[in-house]
Design a protein around this nucleic acid. Structure first.
Lengths: 222, 222
DNA sequence: TAGAGAATGTTGCTGATGTCAACATCAGCC
DNA sequence: GGCTGATGTTGACATCAGCAACATTCTCTA
């Protein structure tokens, strides 16, 4: 039996995280407040600072949690396919479905103000999710459903496509209901497969090692 | 000659807007503050409220301004193409280029907390920008470079693609430098054209009138 | 041309927030 | 039993969005 309400909570970090995830889902990043998270966890407004350096870190951990859930959703959706290319398509649909179900959490995951290197866990689990997509791409290449060559550009184009649908849908820019958006995604994934099948792969410039990843765009205004 | 510093500013609304656009570009939506905008305009912290109902409306107008600039960029980029399909491709590249140049402004344009119906100007000019893309699509269909049929799904898939690239790039998720991102976009636009050329168009379910546009996804967490 | 009323800008306030500093309580170990 | 570090609390400060009351100026009409 957990002590009724001891001075020490015992599991406050996880409780705060759960409350934070729920709060994000309800009010989005704009209304998200450390004090409200603390309120919901039943602790003082400063208790969270014993577990998270600041608001940014709490949000980063919440984002990381979202990436784990997204990866799981992609994996589970993909698993229902009979062929590699089917798994890839279903994985993409799972991606959009996830975004439609948790639009605010999805927003935090991708549009956070930019994490200083300290909040790196988000990035790591984010790469995990990308690896799932990449594996489906590679399997589809082996299967002969996608052109051979560096899988990275193929994965990035597929990612861009579903991410674009997800972002436009969750920001209210698609003229579709939720169900129609999923229908649209299915159609798009079909189109992607048939369109990419005999694609001419890009030159070396785009297959450059992922290590060259820029720290961050950070384009300044001129 | 504008009065040195009369009690009445004379053109405060526009000055606030300019300052707001600049501030967004520098600090993004998170650091964006009405008071800082007022400071930069050299007026008291409450003066902006004579011209904008609240912070949300100011941001909405800034977003609308962004959509106008985006539409201009798309039009100008497209104009350099010799054929309709070239104009379409260049238009898409212009879209991504705009996002890379003004990442924070782009963020505000698409990921604002959701405007109550009052802030509608943003939506109107947003539709303007979409219309430019749609026209390029229709021209390309007439030219025979894209399959005939309802241009809407084609436009939405093209939009999703460039929007996905833009969002992933500006949030630091693409393993490319800025220049490489533009190269990638060019390649993707080529792939889009060759892939869509003989595409099987979707059934009627996805060509439903745009009037059916949902108010907003607003998916609640379960 | 004078003055009333509407615009526009200012000062001062309230309630909320992020975060710091100081203090209180508790767990585990000697 | 007492010390030390971890965890939670209280109180404070600066800043922010937005409201209310007041000041100044513009414009329009009589």
């Amino acid at each position: 039996m957990p002590p009724k309400r001891a001075y020490h909570h015992g599991n406050l970090r996880q409780t705060l995280l759960d409350a934070g995830v729920a709060l994000i889902g309800e009010v989005g990043p704009k209304g998200f407040t450390i004090r409200e998270v603390a309120r919901r966890a039943g602790v003082s407004h400063n208790a969270p600072y014993r577990h998270f350096r600041d608001k940014g870190e709490l949000l980063a951990v919440i984002a990381a949690e979202g990436f784990e859930r997204l990866a799981l959703a992609m994996k589970q959706s993909g698993a229902e396919g009979g062929t590699a290319i089917d798994r890839l398509r279903l994985c993409g649909c799972g991606y959009v479905d996830f975004a439609l179900r948790w639009p605010q959490h999805f927003l935090v995951m991708f549009d956070l103000p930019a994490a200083p290197e300290d909040y790196s866990s988000r990035e790591i689990v984010g790469k995990n999710a990308f690896q799932i997509l990449l594996d489906f791409i590679i399997d589809s290449q082996k299967e002969g459903s996608l052109p051979r060559g560096d899988p990275l550009p193929l994965a990035l184009i597929a990612w861009s496509l579903v991410h674009g649908i997800a972002k436009l849908a969750t920001s209210g820019h698609l003229p579709y209901t939720l169900g129609q958006t999923l229908d649209f995604t299915r159609w798009v994934s079909q189109a992607f497969v048939s369109g990419m099948k005999h694609l001419k792969m890009p030159g070396t410039r785009l297959t450059v090692s992922a290590k060259k990843r820029p720290a961050r765009p950070s384009v300044k205004c001129a």
